[in-house]
Design a protein around this nucleic acid. Structure first.
Lengths: 260, 260
DNA sequence: TGTTTTGTTTCATATTATAAAACACTGTTT
DNA sequence: AAACAGTGTTTTATAATATGAAACAAAACA
């Protein structure tokens, strides 16, 4: 059992936050003592925190197993979050533009806690299409969006990420060698976009380009999810790349950053 | 300024929860003193809570206005929530079934805090289609999904809801008279499904039917979002109703409830 | 049947959350 | 310019309460 070996002192609110965050990680279902051991808080404390969260709908308790799960309250935060988020708000029209130009599924991604996470999606209207649901997560080494996010992160972030994270193989195309991944990241920075085919999911192609803020820091990546059959078509793929790069350039310019 | 006139004593964790919940309601952007007044906690307390949430990414602070907004951590909870949620898990195959049979956008909705909220969506692949993003909210009196959720709630819930909530007009088709709404709810219960055209959004038609648990309590509604042009086609609409009812009957039976 | 492992409750004690007040800073008004 | 009225934030003495150990209850297991 993995323990939280940080022996830092937490106040009551921090404890409640860490308790909640445990449900977003590896396990999404916890018992009181199990979670108490992981967090290093006493069972009584975890019990009280979970009961409080339960009354507000943040967690549910299975009446048979007595285990705790995430509750439905979180759905309530999605709409206000999307509404207040500058990136999703600003990116919407460019997502629509790219969707219209390419006919493929367009999605928006950020790095959160060392993972790629999809924060908005606009599905293709073709019969054969790729999906990318809101909230979908993946590691940062597999797939165009993930690699693009990693490529445009700070050098320090990239290094610590590569030091700490094992490059798990997800498909036969996943880059599992650090050197080849670093080479890919370098190429992405040079070309200004990332592409991948079946690195995370077999049959799924993907293209991705970074959206910059006024300082030239990547705040998100705009991506396309494309079925292999169309991804393999050079003409179509080039059209998609062009559309994507056009959109991120415009958006970044809007934020005060001019691509060279 | 609306104040939280409950003079109940809250413990530290409850205070932090109420602070967070404030961002899911009317305002999604708060100043310290403003929020302190609304919640009835001292500014120092709210300040400390917000700073703690800030370090964990639950809220962001605008560096200019010093106002607090929701942070990106919430995106992290979507995937585990969808994964652990029995309703979304179980409904998936029926959503796909209805989507295949009708070609329209299928979505799943629940009541959360007196609102309809979309907890899963499967977009139509037609050129002209209606969207219904995950997390989308609406009041319970306008639109087929909302009315269906209300119709199959407990009589006590319906009464208190109608007593407390003003029936705001959203379009020219919105039911704003209590009696006509109650009559509509009664009809929905009799027919086993709800339909609406342009009650919430002009040009948008909708059909909805309840998913029951083993006790016959509605745990969610399965719905279709259909553009007016196709909604007005009787043949198509009847096919959609049939598909929807077939799916909720099967799913409810799976849960141990047999429709009479 | 005994044994281990759950979730949960109790309770004395020390930790810490708390609100008032002060502070620093902003923009506005006089 | 000076006074004012708002902010967000920090300080601090004190009262309130979060806390972990232990006990309890109720499963699950051998």
């Amino acid at each position: 059992m993995k323990q939280n070996n940080d022996h830092k002192k937490y106040n009551a609110i921090e404890k409640s936050i860490l308790t909640l965050l445990a449900f977003s990680e590896d396990k999404s279902s916890w018992g009181v003592r199990e979670l108490s051991q992981k967090l290093g808080f006493s069972p009584a404390t975890v019990q009280r925190i979970l009961q409080t969260y339960k009354t507000y709908g943040f967690v549910k308790q299975d009446s048979q197993t007595r285990q705790y799960h995430l509750g439905n309250v979180f759905y309530k935060f999605i709409e206000p979050l999307q509404h207040v988020n500058q990136v999703t708000r600003g990116a919407r029209k460019y997502m629509e533009q790219v969707a219209a130009e390419t006919g493929e599924t367009v999605h928006l991604n950020i790095v959160e806690d060392g993972h790629r996470i999809c924060i908005d999606t606009l599905e293709s209207s073709r019969a054969l299409r790729a999906g990318m649901p809101l909230g979908h997560r993946s590691p940062l080494h597999a797939g165009a969006s993930a690699k693009c996010l990693l490529a445009f992160s700070s050098p320090e972030f990239i290094e610590t990420y590569l030091d700490l994270t094992p490059l798990t193989r997800l498909t036969e195309n996943t880059l599992v060698e650090r050197t080849s991944l670093e080479q890919a990241l370098s190429q992405i920075r040079q070309e200004g976009f990332a592409g991948s085919l079946g690195e995370r999911t077999p049959g799924l192609g993907s293209l991705s380009a970074p959206i910059m803020d006024h300082r030239g820091k990547a705040i998100a990546v705009l991506s396309l999810a494309i079925p292999e059959i169309r991804f393999s078509n050079d003409v179509h793929r080039n059209k998609c790349i062009e559309s994507l790069i056009g959109a991120v350039r415009e958006f970044s310019l809007e934020n005060g950053f001019l691509f060279r």
